[in-house]
Amino acid sequence: MKLSSIVESISLEVKTGKNNLQNDVTGVYISDLLSDVMANSKEGNIWITLQTHLNIVAVAGLKNLSGIIIVGNRQIQQDVLQKAESEKITVMSTPLPAFEVAGKLYQLLNG
């Protein structure tokens, strides 16, 4: 499934990397622990987290993730968005909590 379909179906706000929306999403990984994401996420995964630390951009880049969904209406600091934009990482935002984003994506991708 393309990132753009996911953005549309669960009404995500795209904060950065708007040019990558045609990328394919290979699956979904949820974690707030960066070492966990480094160890267990797969290339092309979309990453759901409430972590907004600057290092999320590096993790997404290193693992070639298709995008980051920041949940729970978390504020994202400007430096994080700037870094994501310059590294061409798609950062999206939603007011929904991680459990519900996962639930909706699971129905969309596996249902």
Binding site: I30, E100, A102, G103
Partner: peptide, 20 residues
């Protein structure tokens, strides 16, 4: 299961997310 699959299965079975 991973957090995604565990959440997905429970949501599909009708469990809502926590209020916040």
């Amino acid at each position: 299961f991973c957090m995604y699959t565990a959440s997905g299965k429970l949501y599909a079975a009708g469990l809502p997310g926590c209020l916040f």
